[in-house]
Design a protein around this nucleic acid. Structure first.
Length: 570
RNA sequence: CGGGGUGUAGCGCAGUUGGCUAGCGCGCAGCGUUUGGGACGCUGAGGUCGGAGGUUCGAGUCCUCUCACCCCGACCA
């Protein structure tokens, strides 16, 4: 490709809209352009890399036994009502009507469609197991798109769905996919860690996420250096500080004028935070919920949502708290009626706590569960935090931020039951197909690679997903000899199957070198009067500091070998 | 949806207490001189000041409404 004809211009200045590195670099390199919030056009450079990533994914999916299918983006809303997931997706679902007023959705994912499809063709255990996948555009009306391609509303996603006769088969499919995913990340040059995850709106049992560790990540990973335990903070468990265990004492009222938060109360009374019990108020599917836990611990809203089996959960507004006649700042479960009380297990870890007195400026000492109050539901709803104990080995946990670049789930039979995907087993009994699903966001993966591989000058592409393999960079094009050698090299290399971006622009060396660094093409070949004097050209790897001079004799072979040596080799 | 912010040329920005013809840098076009790490000179094109309404002799500037985009929180690949 001749740079002079390439659609997309490089930018010197950082676009004001972009604040994540990958976003800035992609805009500056002329790879993407935003059309509206969370919707992007892909220019040739981006599309080439995206296609390469897709091809790697395709290759690994095929190797693992997957069959590629094409599925509709336009889907009847009925199907989503039937699976019950329209509600789970809520406003994230893009909805529309056709001319006959039939309600449709733009597919946010394709489990429903594929289950319907496979359920139609698979009738016998002899037809199983099967794996189908597709790489297509999906639509989600995200409340807040952000970070360039990291979180968008229209995006390309690979989804593979596995169909098995039983849990054992599912375990095997899951294992294959996990391996395929590791291969994909290795080949795309993206370091990831696999962590335990909550299964979210999709539901199901086991679930793992593949996280690219980076500061700009949206998720928090809790991990243990010692034993390798790693989980999304939504899912992570931890060992909390031991409470004080002593003989139960009489409840005592104590004045706490103006002290509302746990910090204030603990400081005022001169006690540690873990010697208190706090209260937080939520609205779960319209019902107000009184949540209580030890003062040093934060609520994990995902765990709370799962414990309550709620589809919608949010903090209650001050008005709603007032209406429920709760005394914010001095609330406790003691003596409360007509409200559902949910507790974290931590209230059993310790004795003689300080808790609210349910009247302003007043707390109670020596509160003990279950002596002094009852709860409707108790479970683990605690947020794990760095510094707490690892649930596996008790060592101190760490935390990091990451981008979720893949998520695999054991779905089970939830969807097949709802959508009538049954097979007949060897005994002639009808059983629901056991499903799994495995997703990768292609654009997000691309952005994550840039987050992980760049310097102050620009992108540093791994060879296997670089838009071009070689950046051919002649200096002083008006020199006939330079022009002739460059043109010759361009056609020779292209003819040898090398992907060459040929900077045929009449710009100064500085401009060309800087653009070369910005675009991050792995191998740069510089041709100039200076190199030609010695009958040679200069080779420089984007990831290296120093160039090397190589002779023009056999240059095509030299470059071909260098390029293939730089590939992953899979 | 709650909180915060920004809308002026393709991009990045300036524009005073309202004042006459709306500027600067980059980029773009032409000419010339240069050029191994974002060169220089001259010339030129490019603007409904996000939109609507209002106040005023006069609005980029003040008021009301509205739209878009970005950032922080609740969702996810």
């Amino acid at each position: 490709m001749r740079f002079s004809k390439l659609i997309g211009k490089t930018l010197k200045e950082i676009p004001a809209e972009a604040d994540t590195i990958s976003h800035q670099l992609m805009v500056r390199a002329g790879m993407i352009r935003q059309l509206c919030a969370g919707v992007y056009s892909y220019l040739p450079l981006a599309l080439r890399s995206l296609k390469k990533i897709e091809d790697i994914i395709r290759d690994e999916m095929d190797k693992a036994g997957g069959q590629e299918v094409g599925l509709p983006v336009l889907q009847p809303r009925e199907l989503w009502d039937k699976s019950g997931r329209a509600e789970a997706f809520g406003k994230n679902l893009f909805e529309l009507s056709d001319r006959k007023e039939r309600r449709l959705v733009l597919g946010p994912t394709h489990e429903e469609v594929i289950t319907d499809l496979v359920g139609y063709f698979v009738k016998s255990y002899r037809d199983l197991p099967v794996m189908a996948y597709q790489i297509q555009t999906k639509f989600r009306d995200e409340p807040r798109p952000r970070g360039g391609l990291i979180r968008v509303r229209e995006f390309t996603m690979k989804d593979l769905y596995s169909f098995d006769i039983d849990e054992k088969g599912l375990d095997e499919s899951y294992r294959k996919m996990r391996q395929a995913y590791q291969n994909i990340y290795r080949r795309t040059g993206l370091p990831v860690i696999m962590i335990q995850a909550d299964s979210g709106a999709i539901g199901g049992k086991d679930s793992s996420e593949f996280m690219a560790v980076t500061e700009c990540g949206e998720d928090v990973i809790i991990y243990c250096d010692k034993c390798g335990y790693a989980a999304n903070s939504e899912k992570a468990n931890s060992i909390k500080a031991e409470g004080v265990n002593e003989g139960l004492l009489e409840i005592q009222e104590v004045a706490t004028p103006g002290q509302k938060t746990i910090e204030e109360v603990a400081r005022y009374l001169g006690i540690p935070k873990f010697q208190t019990i706090k209260a937080v108020f939520y609205i779960a599917d319209g019902e107000i919920i009184f949540v209580t836990l030890r003062g040093d611990i934060e609520v994990n809203e995902i765990k709370l949502k799962n414990l309550l089996k709620a589809t919608d959960l949010r903090l209650a507004l001050p008005d709603e708290v007032r209406q429920a006649e709760l005394v914010a700042g001095s609330a406790s479960a003691i003596g409360l009626k007509n409200i559902r009380i949910v507790a974290d297990e931590s209230i059993t870890m310790g004795t003689n706590f300080v808790a609210g007195a349910n009247k302003p400026d007043c707390h109670l000492r020596n509160v003990n569960y279950p002596r002094d109050f009852k709860v409707d539901l108790i479970g683990d709803i605690a947020l794990a935090q760095a510094g707490e104990g690892c649930p596996e080995c008790a060592c101190a946990l760490n935390s990091a931020r990451g981008i979720e670049v893949g998520h695999i789930f054991k779905l089970g039979t939830f969807l097949s039951e709802k959508l009538d995907a049954y097979y007949t087993d060897a005994e002639g009994i009808s059983r629901p197909i056991v499903m799994g699903c495995y997703g990768i966001g292609v654009g997000r993966l691309l952005a994550s690679v840039i987050e992980a591989s760049h310097d102050e000058k620009g992108i540093i592409w791994p060879m296997d997903i670089a838009p071009y393999q070689v950046y051919l960079c002649p200096l002083f094009m008006e020199d006939d000899k330079v022009a002739k050698v460059a043109e010759g090299l361009y056609s020779a290399l292209t003819g040898a199957g090398i992907e060459v971006l040929y900077d045929d622009r009449p710009d100064s060396p500085g401009v060309k070198f800087n653009d070369a660094d910005l675009l991050g093409i792995p191998l740069r070949i510089t041709v100039s009067p200076r190199t030609l004097e010695k009958g040679s050209v200069e080779l420089k790897w984007r990831c290296d500091k120093k160039p090397e001079i190589v002779t023009l004799d056999g240059i095509t072979e030299t470059v071909t070998q260098a390029v293939s040596a730089a590939k992953d080799g899979a």
